[in-house]
Amino acid sequence: MSRDEKIARPLGGLLVVLAVLCLLTQLAHSQGINSFMERRVELGFRLFRTLLSADQDLDKRVDSGGYLPLYLLYRDESEDAQRFGEGLRRQSAVLRGIPVRVEVVSLDELLVGARPVPAGLYLGQPLFKRELRGLVEYGVANGVVVFSPFEGDVEKGALAGVAVESRVRPYINDTTLKRSGIRIKSFFLRVAKHYDETR
């Protein structure tokens, strides 16, 4: 073995180890992000249901089949969306005695009007600002609850979300609520955290 080879071999090995370490670190990081987001998505299901149960006009949102239609929205990750939809479906068989139907719907499909207006919209994937704005306007126009479990979306206009502090509380955008004309029971508003865009 030449002197150069003696040096080159351990160096090559070291580089491979470093590359693997980098890859693992990256994976762990993305896994961490994903698990954090998934936790927020799944945590939000209960608050979404509580919010819907506090909707004073919930009975009027029942479709012709006698179901309360709820859409789980996604942008491009339909696989994750299906999984989340299944989770929401499992937890939301009945709401205030009304049977619930959960559908996984793409944002584009919804916004082009290919779907009937639901009783509530649950965001299963973070949206770009422009897309979120479009969704919020849809919710305001149709008087539908738009619930986003993702951090910062309520501040950007989503009607409701998750406020994670020492305890988990619903988070309400008062401006959007007012604009959309949805009537929420005062009990809910009393325990929720509020965000007012005008302040």
């Binding site: 209960r46 249901r49 509580t50 149960s53 709401l95 029971k185 009990f187 325990v191």
Partner: peptide, 15 residues
């Protein structure tokens, strides 16, 4: 501290 009273079906029973 105002706390939500949540029912079995995640409905808001009161505060």
């Amino acid at each position: 501290v105002d706390t939500a009273l949540i029912g079995r079906e995640d409905e808001l029973l009161g505060v």
